Amino acid sequence: MGPRARKTWLALHVISSVGWLGATLANLALASAAFGAPQLYRAMALLGDLVVLPLALTALTTGVVLSLGTRWGLVKHRWVLVKFALTVVAVAATAFSLRPELHAAASGVAGAGRGVLAASCVSLSIYVFSTVVSVFKPWGRTRWA
Rank of each mutant, 00 (worst) to 15 (best):
L117N: 10
G22L: 14
L25Y: 01
W20G: 13
E101V: 10
H77R: 15
V75H: 11
P100D: 12
A92M: 01
S130H: 03
S125C: 10
L60H: 04
T61P: 09
V133D: 09
W20F: 15
F136G: 01
S107M: 00
T58R: 05
I15D: 07
K137D: 06
V51F: 11
F136A: 12
A29N: 01
Q39S: 13
A33T: 01
G22N: 06
V75Q: 05
W79Y: 15
L68N: 02
S16V: 12
S16Q: 15
Q39E: 15
T58C: 11
S134Y: 03
W72D: 09
V14G: 05
A92Y: 03
V64G: 02
L98C: 05
S17I: 10
L12Y: 00
A110R: 14
F136H: 06
W20L: 15
G63W: 09
V133N: 00
T58G: 10
C121K: 15
F136C: 10
S67R: 05
G36Y: 14
F35D: 15
S32R: 10
S16H: 14
A112K: 07
L81N: 04
L25N: 02
V64Y: 06
S125L: 10
C121Q: 13
V116I: 09
L53H: 06
S120R: 03
P138V: 11
T87G: 00
A29I: 11
Q39F: 13
L98W: 09
S123M: 14
W144T: 06
T58W: 13
W72Y: 14
A105E: 01
S123D: 04
A105V: 01
S17F: 09
A85K: 00
R42P: 02
T87L: 01
L53N: 09
I126Y: 08
S17C: 04
G113F: 05
G140V: 08
A34D: 02
V122G: 06
T142Y: 05
T142M: 04
A45G: 10
L74M: 15
F136I: 15
G113R: 08
V128L: 13
P54H: 04
K137I: 00
F129A: 15
W144F: 15
T131D: 03
V88I: 11
S123G: 11
P138Y: 06
R99S: 02
V135K: 13
R78Y: 11
L46A: 07
G73M: 07
V132W: 12
S130W: 03
V109E: 09
H77C: 07
G73D: 04
P38V: 11
L47H: 02
A90C: 06
T142H: 00
M44H: 05
G19F: 12
L98Q: 09
A118D: 12
W144M: 13
S134N: 02
D49V: 05
L53Y: 06
L102G: 05
L47N: 14
T131I: 12
S67E: 08
L124C: 12
L40F: 10
R114G: 11
L60C: 02
G22M: 12
S134D: 04
R71K: 12
P54G: 00
A33L: 08
V122H: 03
R143K: 12
L86G: 05
G115Y: 08
A23F: 14
L28W: 08
V116W: 09
A90S: 08
L50V: 13
A105M: 06
A106N: 01
V88A: 14
L98V: 14
S67V: 12
L98R: 11
W79A: 12
A59F: 03
L25E: 03
